[in-house]
Design a protein around this nucleic acid. Sequence first.
DNA 1: TTCCGACAGTGGGGTCGCAAT
DNA 2: ATTGCGACCCCACTATCGGAA
Length: 324
Amino acid sequence: MTAELPAPVRPMLATAGEPPAGSGWAFEFKWDGVRAIIGTAGDQVQLTSRNGNDVTLGYPELTGIGLGGGRRLLLDGELVALDPAGRPDFGLLQHRMHVRSPAPELQAAVPVQLYVFDLLAVDGAPLVHEPFDTRRARLLELGLDTAPGVAVPPSFTDVTGAQLLEVARAHRLEGIVAKRRRSRYEPGRRSATWIKTALMTTQEIVLGGWTPGSGRRASTLGALLLGAHDDEGSLRFLGHVGTGFTDAVLHDLLGRLQPLERRTSPFDEEVPREYARRARWVDPVLVGEVVYRSMTHDGRLRHAVWRGLRPDREPAETRLPTTP
DNA sequence: TTCCGACAGTGGGGTCGCAAT
DNA sequence: ATTGCGACCCCACTATCGGAA
């Protein structure tokens, strides 16, 4: 009979911050996919999501490839879908990650790769108490990248975090993760021994409306509807921002928006109905600043965070983002 | 006493499944 | 047939509270 799969663990999480200076850190690229804890035993493979769900059936291309070479391994990694340029593209992966059963045409359309970056147990012997350097060396010895669709991405100890962050920026990757080389693996914890730095872009936007909040934000606003002018001067819709506010900022914004209320959308393009439904429109005269991680395929800001009003700027000065 | 970590809650971009309309 | 909602994924962030420092 087949050997028993190792019990999955909750993945260790990174805290957000600037790349640490000084020695004692290894730096990796941050991959824009979904986290997976991978168990192998014999010819079996089990994939577990960050929240402990078994997602093995959704990724059949990773189960028949001899991952682990018959050994009982517990691995930590990321499932990624690559765009034509070879960059991980979360938007592509979204077509795959909810599917809980084999779907051959979908697998062909959106092939998924497995990037393995940590080794947590070998043949029943836990390695979580070993330092990162040791786990990394043991991981490399396994030669997992000989399996099709599996890679062990690089970890750098000969560059600074700032340098690798610039490399990530040049290649339009999501960011970097710094890992303390002497640190153990802390399952399920958001630890300061892993520090992630996401590349963010600053964007000036025009406020075109807002949506009411709910719960503890029922008396203020839920999100701001964002726009910017294109080269022809038309106000284009850039999506929402619903985070980054303190309570004081929410009240201040509401007080500024309410006198500007109008009955029709200020945008010069159709705002999707599911957003327009709850929208309160305002005259597009306030300029603010947000940061965001990337653009969605239909031209909206992904992971936008509110930074503040820009009373020094005019709405006409805003421009659509140029980077993807 | 102050500070930090964990947690709950609120918001965004998505896809899919299912129930209500 | 359409719509709305929840369940999962990714995520950022604020407020709160209890325990550590």
